[in-house]
Design a protein around this nucleic acid. Structure first.
Lengths: 302, 302
DNA sequence: GCAGGATTATCAATTATGATGATTAAAGAA
DNA sequence: TTCTTTAATCATCATAATTGATAATCCTGC
């Protein structure tokens, strides 16, 4: 074949080692083999790649101009070889992961992504930040391999799940909100003010599902939510990690609720579909997320 | 060789045509050839690429996972072939071009870049916006292949040049500058106020080189220059194309000079080093810039 | 200037691989 | 069923790569 991989390999080896003989040694071939490969490559190309006037061959300008492209061919070929090895080792080619932003801090998942890229450079990762319902739905429809969500009471049979940590919630409101001025906040106090909740437009609104109040505003974005809280538009139950900095700078305050502890935990689960083989990526993610979550549990409460 | 290009070609042809026989027809080979290539590829990979249980071969999930990488190998190989053809046709692999931003509008050069990319997809282009002195220096040191500059009286022997158009200069100042209030501006009037000039820190400052005034501020950036003009920090000689929009919105005005026409032309030259072969890119650029500049000349004066 | 070491080119012999055509078997379509 | 199309297999051929040996060349050190 014209421009065969052997020829390209010999070319690069010669450039990098500086001589045909050295290239032959590196590639474990006879010197005459390299000589022949390069000659043929030059014939195929139509111009000479090395200047043989001196003892050691010197790359011609034309040869230099080919270097990048040749390297790129060999690189993608090595890549293919690695991909094949990955498949043999059941390393997935792509994997996707959704996480409920009310269950685990963004930072944890982003840290995970950079670790993942070290571990599995050939595997493409899709990392989806989602609401609880959306994340659940994505697993249900087999659109993602794994999801991190706030625990539900039960899961369908085809789901596997693993509890990984607790996330601490608290009831909060803007610093200037009337509720912030009370010494003790009872359910009937909450009921008098607007309740802000995270939900998802794609899964449809649920209305009147709160036993505390029927005046509810929904948002699918935590940032919007935080802004509404700061502006005193209502109260909400939020995970500590999402409101930590605002609590510290005082723009948002925790409400001293009388019907439950000021900070109350929710379980966080990893969920995935049982059917389908678990490749190395999925296994690694499972273990790594479990460990990272364990570390989170030991975080001192605010 | 393991994972030879023939094997990969046969693989892709089979996927795209849907059968071994059709792939053989497309590649102009015997059916048994394709069959053998695919078999060997499967042996090298370690898993089967097609499911032969039905009449027409169906790509396995593993085969599918290889598709992108295989295509990428073939693509970079085709690319190499094209690069070689380019070199045979003396199309440069990279080319660089500097332009004096006081000689030709940015927009012209950017338009050129997108045309260039259509014409020479494999050639990388470096487009440098520079001062006159810097552009000249880059040609001198052979750092760029071509430059567009305001004409000089003469060039060194090793330079080639071609006049391509005239750029119209005018003397301008900020709308609130004292000079803007005069009916006629004489050289001695100009001498009383600060002169703003474009120069380049890399080539060193020139001082006292003006016969009009010794109070000169320098900048190497046209944007900074425009801002200084708007703020009334001095007067400057600027090309019409650089001040056109500011003249229209009135933030900068032309000074009615008595010692020269209100609008006075400078010649614009293309310059390059004579030595070194002219490839197709350079020739194309030469012609294209000449034509675009000719069109500029026919632009109605403001 | 000359010897020694290392390099590249060339050639004939060998090996490996791809390509071919014929044949068989099997899977749909009529 | 019959006809067509397809894939696998095999022996054979052609091409190309590989090798080892050899000769010519270049550079270095003496």
């Amino acid at each position: 074949m014209e421009l065969s991989l052997e020829q390209l390999q010999a070319f690069i080896a010669t450039v990098e080692t500086g001589s045909f003989s050295a290239a032959a040694r590196r590639l474990g071939k006879a010197q005459s083999s390299i000589s022949g490969l390069i000659s043929n490559l030059e014939i195929d190309a139509g111009f000479s790649l090395f200047d043989r006037s001196s003892k050691i061959p010197k790359l011609t300008p034309e040869g230099l101009a080919l270097m990048n492209d040749v390297k790129s061919v060999l690189k993608s070929h090595r890549n293919l070889r690695h991909r094949i090895d990955n498949i043999m080792d059941s390393v997935e080619s792509e994997i996707s992961l959704a996480y409920d932003n009310m269950a685990i801090p963004d930072g944890v998942m982003l840290g995970l992504a950079s670790e993942f890229e070290q571990q599995f450079p050939l595997t493409s990762l899709m990392l989806l930040e989602a609401t609880h319902k959306r994340a659940y739905q994505l697993i249900e429809q087999n659109k993602v391999n794994l999801a991190v969500v706030i625990s539900q009471d039960d899961y369908p049979e085809q789901f596997a799940f693993r509890g990984i940590c607790h996330v601490h919630y608290c009831t909060v409101a803007g610093a200037k909100h009337p509720l912030a001025k009370l010494d003790k906040v009872a359910p009937q106090d909450l009921a008098q003010y607007r309740h802000l909740r995270i939900t998802d437009t794609q899964t449809g609104f649920r209305r009147f599902d709160s036993d505390l109040t029927s005046n509810i505003w929904y948002s699918n974005s935590p940032t919007t939510m935080m802004e509404m809280l700061r502006q005193g538009l209502g109260w909400a139950e939020m995970p500590l990690h999402a409101v930590e900095s605002q609590l510290l700078n005082g723009s948002i305050v925790r409400l001293p609720t009388s019907h439950q502890e000021v900070t109350f935990p929710h379980c966080v689960d990893l969920i995935w579909q049982i059917e389908g083989a678990m490749g190395q990526c999925l296994q690694w993610l499972l273990e790594r997320i479990t460990n990272k979550a364990k570390a989170l549990n030991q975080r001192p409460a605010l």
